[in-house]
Write a protein that binds this DNA or RNA. Structure first.
Lengths: 360, 360
DNA sequence: TCCACCTATGACATCGGTGTCATGACATCG
DNA sequence: CGATGTCATGACACCGATGTCATAGGTGGA
């Protein structure tokens, strides 16, 4: 690989002059500049980042640690790739600044993380972003103070800057929309009890019911994800069966995610129920491959992965420039409800609401 | 950030001795070694890759260019993330060698690719891998001869080493299995006519029919992806309708991908047909979130993304070590058929085959 | 006309590691 | 006992950029 000395020799100038042409940080005579550029092209010269970095002590690198690229053996998400939208958001935002994103994959094996961090530190990354595959509490190994870090889709208990989804509000907004559409008996099939999102979303569900003056009925809330993935369909079937046999059965099923909603479509249809004519279904995530492709398309809430990625990258950039907020707090990012054809508007109980529906 | 000189001073040795401790490339007395290690820990010293790289001229970096992380506005794949499995396979394989993978995202905007390549060259990557979002013909900007490059999920016309999926064989194997299960009237809903996979897979389809002595009936092959994504459902509905109204209607629908199969499930059920009791469905890709979650689970062929990623990385490593084959040819990677509950075994026409089914 | 000043350019040191070679202290062997 | 070899360590140069400072040549104002 040609060096700046080769170029200098070919152009019959000093290396420093070549450097000036490259960086434009000092005036260079036109004739000289042309000669240098010609030599650069002729030799196919590309400056070495390593040498530049040594001198300037600026790597222009941002490190991203994720398990998203590797397989998650998570019962909840056998192929949970959508969190890669997070990476997309981060990439977009970091790319705009001219910095380069280095991505390392932990394979969700936390014991590998320290090694990845070490590699990044060897490359003198200017900052780190850690992305979790789903909303969770984490504890990262220590990182030197002068390397800022932002957690994404996760948080810790020592106040590291973090960006997480607004699970409470997402579920709240969805349920509020269902109520506005005339639904009163709203079933909720939750994800596993031990994940962070489940509790937050149930809060949002209860809150929305409370605001509408609808009593919370525990019989309408069941976990749809107990035990191993193999038994999942059976668990769902049982839960749905139990709720449909209530004296006041639900008119809509809210699912823990779009994948679960996909299963629920199949189960309901096997029971001879048409979606949405006989019963409505809503999901969570706005996992587009499912939500848009399902027939009929699925009403759901967006888990705002891309927006979270953008936000995380912005926070890191703020930390670089020292604008970083001192509170070192957690950003909560909400996502919109996507209203599609899997939920019917139910005939509302009084005339004023009927009018509303007509306008809609 | 502490340097090797700081460590040397703290441990009262020369920088070179610290280097020896770090790399273990020459014997160091135990007492000295302990002192050096203590100093390293005390100072939180992490060696600078840039400095190391300058001297050794080995970056330990591999560059990966992909559009997979960014949004593809492809009618065929509104959220086609599964090709990220490719990245996973590459990451795994490269990681084993101790090299670091740098990932850059072209956002599928080919005009950005030269810039990304330049950035990688500045970092002195030892090799490049280009990943396309779907099987296609590409033309990359030139790369210096001393930087090996491997194309993945794509190929070019100048013989660059490439790894592509075996679309022909995949479809062939699936159709052969369907025939073995007793199906004779096999409908095929294809992807867009202009993509590489469509032609290859149709060849596989015809080949399998031919081997079984079944005549090819053009009425059973229809494109399921014409026009814009919005009209896709309508197009599918029409194509399915036409085929079901044939005097000899199909007993199974082969779909261009699992997403299409998901739509087909909905359409068939809307027509009152149960899958698989009334009609069978098969997909392509083994996009697990869909194939495993659908009810009933979907019979499909794996598009072997992970295996292709592994293979691509291996080929690059071979090029590093000079073992690279001179033919600079294209590797074709096949994937297995996943037989799930969306296809029924049909009563075979004679007794000997009936026996076979019983054993199964 | 001479000095001050600006422009264009080059010499040299430096960043943080590592390769090469030299050196001093012992151990081994004839 | 001296020659030879091995071990542990250090001095120094070098990788390829760029920051600092110096300098040659030209220009303008007093």
């Amino acid at each position: 690989m040609a060096t700046i000395y080769d170029v200098a020799k070919a152009a019959k100038v000093s290396p420093k002059t070549v450097s000036r042409v490259l960086n434009g940080d000092a005036p260079v005579g036109k004739k000289t500049r042309d000669a240098v550029n010609a030599a650069i092209t002729a030799l196919g010269y590309v400056p070495s980042n390593a040498a530049r970095m040594m001198r300037s002590n600026k790597s222009g690198l941002v490190g991203l640690i994720t398990g998203a690229i590797s397989d998650t053996i998570e019962p909840a998400q056998p192929a949970g790739l959508p969190e890669l939208l997070l990476v997309r958001g981060i990439q977009q935002t970091i790319g705009l600044t001219g910095k380069t994103l280095m991505i390392a994959d932990s394979g969700n094996r936390s014991e590998r993380v320290p090694d990845l961090i070490k590699t990044f530190l060897e490359h003198r990354v200017e900052g780190l972003i850690y992305v979790a595959p789903y909303h969770q509490n984490v504890r990262l190994p220590p990182v030197p103070d002068d390397t800022p870090i932002v957690l994404t889709n996760c948080f810790d208990e020592i106040g590291t800057p973090a960006v997480i989804p607004d699970d409470r509000r997402g579920q709240h907004d969805l349920v509020a929309r269902l109520i506005a559409a005339g639904h009163q008996r709203i079933a909720y099939l939750t994800l596993r009890e031990d994940i962070v999102a489940t509790g937050l979303r149930r809060n949002g569900y209860r809150e929305a019911l409370g605001e509408a003056g609808i009593a919370y009925d525990p019989a309408l809330v069941q976990c749809g994800e107990i035990g191993s993935p193999e038994t999942e369909t059976q668990v769902l079937w049982t839960a749905i069966d139990r709720m449909l046999n209530l004296s006041q059965p639900p008119t809509v099923f809210c699912c823990g995610n779009d994948r679960q909603a996909l299963k629920v479509y199949g189960i309901l249809r096997s029971r001879g129920l048409a979606v949405p004519d006989d019963i409505s279904v809503a999901g969570y995530d706005n996992y587009r491959v499912i939500a848009e492709t399902l027939y009929p398309p699925l009403t759901t809430v967006e888990l705002p992965y891309t927006a979270m990625g953008v936000r995380a990258a912005q926070r890191l950039l703020e930390l670089f420039s020292g604008e970083g907020r001192n509170d070192a707090g957690t950003d909560v990012v909400g996502g919109p409800v996507y209203w599609r054809q899997s939920v019917t508007e139910r005939r509302p109980p009084n005339v004023s609401q009927l009018k509303l529906v007509r306008e809609d």
